[in-house]
């Protein structure tokens, strides 16, 4: 059984200006110990997908349909108390901006011990030891002293390590990491990626790694789902999708990554901008920016299996580059 199976998830925001369909008909699954890369531009719905899984979609948003099966239990419609029991315990989340995720007026030990005690009846001293061990595990030097520090006494990279340590406290089955390395230096980014990869492999924790950075996903993920305007447009194993992208959007995304062997050649760009989720045109959401778009794109294509294990939501996929 997969650790997580998302089926037909739709999360909408009911604002005064209209309904924002932030996530529409999203399905994927993550196996035990596997890393799933969720890729897309800002506003493509990847973060909302993460919050939907952990049950933290705030009003005016709510999950309108779909199932989120976590180890076989459906999280959609589950009571708040039961969800809270899972949060931080079996499902943990790491946020994008480490400068903002720790409460500035509470000491690190307070913020870690409360997490331990929220899910286990242990005394303060035991909880403190667990916290110290977790800090040591993510590579924070002299964790005993650092526990007594306030967040502003840490650098950004160190704060993200603290956040990761908090996520690891209960050895969760699933960690949702929402662009956790975007705000960090490249060197720190590399360290944290390596750290997380090691931890996931050692503990069998599944990961959903939300990012817009394809190079991060390439080195980390087993599978990848590319989101555009709230929907998954392409899905498959990371090597296959990055080597042979079917969907024109994925194609454009990969083409716009600078690389050494393309030096001197102008970078390809995807023309235009992402459409407003409030007024999506009928049919394929990418058609206005797509060179392959024609009349057939006026109806929304389904997510079709184009090659074994390879899904794309496109009428005109790039199958000509498929190796024979």
């Amino acid at each position: 059984m997969s650790t997580l199976e998302v089926k037909g998830l739709s999360t909408h925001f009911f604002t005064r200006a209209g309904v924002v369909k932030a996530v529409e008909d999203v399905s994927f699954s993550v196996g035990r110990g596997k890393v799933m890369g969720l890729v897309g531009e800002s506003g493509s719905g990847k973060t909302v997908t993460g919050f939907s899984i952990i049950g933290l979609v705030d009003a005016p948003g709510r999950i309108v349909s779909g199932e989120i099966l976590f180890k076989g239990r459906n999280l959609v419609g589950m009571g708040e108390a039961a969800l809270r029991e899972l949060r931080g315990n079996r499902i943990a989340m790491i946020f994008q901006d480490p400068m903002m995720t720790l409460n500035p007026v509470l000491r690190v030990d307070t913020q870690m011990i409360e997490t331990v005690q929220a899910h286990q009846k242990v005394d303060r001293e035991t909880a403190r030891q667990r916290a110290r061990d977790a800090l040591g595990m993510v590579g924070i030097p002299s964790p005993d002293e650092r526990l007594k520090s306030y967040p502003h006494q840490f650098s950004g990279g160190m704060r993200q390590r603290v956040a990761i340590a908090i996520a690891l406290l209960h050895q969760p089955d699933l960690i949702i990491a929402d662009e956790p390395t975007t705000a960090l230096d490249v060197t720190i980014q590399g360290q944290i990626l390596a750290e997380v990869q090691k931890l996931a492999a050692n503990t069998g924790t599944s990961l959903i790694w939300i990012t817009h950075d394809l190079s991060v996903v390439a080195g980390l993920a087993d599978d990848i789902a590319v989101m555009y305007a709230g929907r998954i447009v392409e899905q498959g194993s990371v090597d296959q999708v990055l080597d042979v992208p079917f969907h024109p959007y994925t194609h454009g995304l990969i083409g716009s990554v600078p690389s050494r062997n393309k030096r001197g050649v102008p970078l390809r760009q995807i023309p235009g901008t992402t459409p407003s989720l409030m007024s999506l045109p009928p049919g394929c959401a990418f058609k206005t920016r797509c060179e392959r778009a024609d009349a057939a794109c006026e109806t929304m294509p389904g997510l079709a299996e184009i090659a074994p294990g390879r899904f794309a939501r496109c009428v005109h996929p790039h199958i000509e580059i498929l190796p024979a």
Binding site: L56, N89, M93, T101, E114, T115, A118
Partner: peptide, 13 residues
């Protein structure tokens, strides 16, 4: 604030 959402994501009451 993010830290409030993070606190909720930790499963705090």
């Amino acid at each position: 604030m993010d830290y409030v959402k993070f606190a909720r994501a930790k499963g705090l009451s």
